[in-house]
Amino acid sequence: MKMKRETLYGYLFILPWLIGFLSLVLYPMIQSFYFSMNDMRITPHGLQFVYAGFNNFLNVWLQDMFFIQELMAFALDTFIRVPVIVVFALVIAMLLNQDVRFKGLFRTIFFLPVIVASGPVISQLVDQGATAIPMLNQDIIMSILNALFPTWFAGVLSNLFNEIITILWYSGVQILLFLAVLQKIDPNLYEAAKIDGGSSWECFWKITLPTIKPLILINLIYTLVSLANSGQNPIINLIYANMFNATRGYGFASAMAWMYAVIIVLMLGILLLAFREKKVKKR
């Protein structure tokens, strides 16, 4: 009897979410999949569906000139930016976790971008060129990069330098999360390690990193998703443009969105695979 009551209450509490999920996530997902299988035309009699099978999906890959190009650029960018953001957040969190003065002030500064950095503000700043590190000499960096790496990779790296501040601005939440978990590590652990003759360097690799490993994964996922879904993303704008395109329409845009989603899920899969818990064998 108690089991039943618990079931009832459980469902009662999650009911709002359940309704929302079914009506605003699951149903639109199915619908969007249906759209992607059709050619949709807006006619005076309303929307007209012509069944097209997987043609839209094929067209995304074979006919669209920009999709593959943008996707490659996005994938490369992401594979560089995500680690940069997370490592950077970890470094800052560790610096702040030291016994420094004005800790509150620094925290306030590093978290500030989360408050002010919205789409239009960032695009205004990028227009002004205010997002590159000012005193760095861009030309020298470019020429060095071009000499060292193949062109496509040098392009990605110079992109990184040009937008370094926007990239760093994405790390506010990650810094807070790292800081919160760093503060929870028991100081006795470090003390014991120090007595046994461990250096700070060893302490970092043997104590800090293993403890915060789950959070690193969470931060990686958060960063990836927030980069992938941000309004500055060219693919998202491409999908948006196709949606209101006369010859392409919703069907094509939906197919593109689906393909994009598959790519994102693949990337997440790679992350999870790299971070999976290795099964400890029982002795």
């Binding site: 459980g10 996530v25 845009a253 969105a257 994009y260 989603a261």
Partner: peptide, 30 residues
């Protein structure tokens, strides 16, 4: 609700909730 009660399919719903975070909004937008 998720934290306090045990009910059938809880893990499924919880997983779907996490999953709904990573769906690109464009799929659902239209």
């Amino acid at each position: 609700g998720f934290a306090r009660f045990n009910f059938p399919l809880k893990r499924l719903w919880f997983g779907l909730m996490l999953f709904s975070f990573i769906i690109p909004p464009q799929i659902l937008m239209m």
